[in-house]
């Protein structure tokens, strides 16, 4: 969004005024930071990191599956025990 206005008091910028804002070091450091971000590979593009992530997820899946299985077998044993018990009259 911009708007034009008439202003006759504005002086043209001098070289000295501009040179105050001249900072090549700042440009270079920003450039290097940007370059690092550009070249930083996302996790899924790095084969080692991707493999590690895959192994971790697999272990997590197996642990969850085995705990689920253990819970199920406990429930089943409970049910069998309850069925075997003589009814109180």
């Amino acid at each position: 969004m911009r708007r034009f206005e008439v202003d006759n008091e504005q002086e043209p910028l001098t070289d000295e005024q501009i040179s105050k804002y001249k900072d090549y070091g700042k440009v270079v450091s920003s450039y290097e930071r940007t370059l690092i971000n550009i070249h930083k590979k996302p996790l899924y593009k790095n084969p080692l990191a991707f493999l590690a992530l895959l192994v971790f997820l697999l272990i997590l899946f197996l642990v969850l599956k085995s705990s689920e299985h253990a819970e199920n077998s406990l429930d089943q044993n409970d049910r069998i025990e309850r069925n075997d018990m003589p009814e109180d009259r």
Binding site: R2, R3, F4, E5, V6, D7, N8, Q10
Partner: peptide, 9 residues
């Protein structure tokens, strides 16, 4: 924010 561009006569 509105950016103002100043023009001289």
């Amino acid at each position: 924010k509105m950016t103002v561009t100043k023009l001289s006569s």
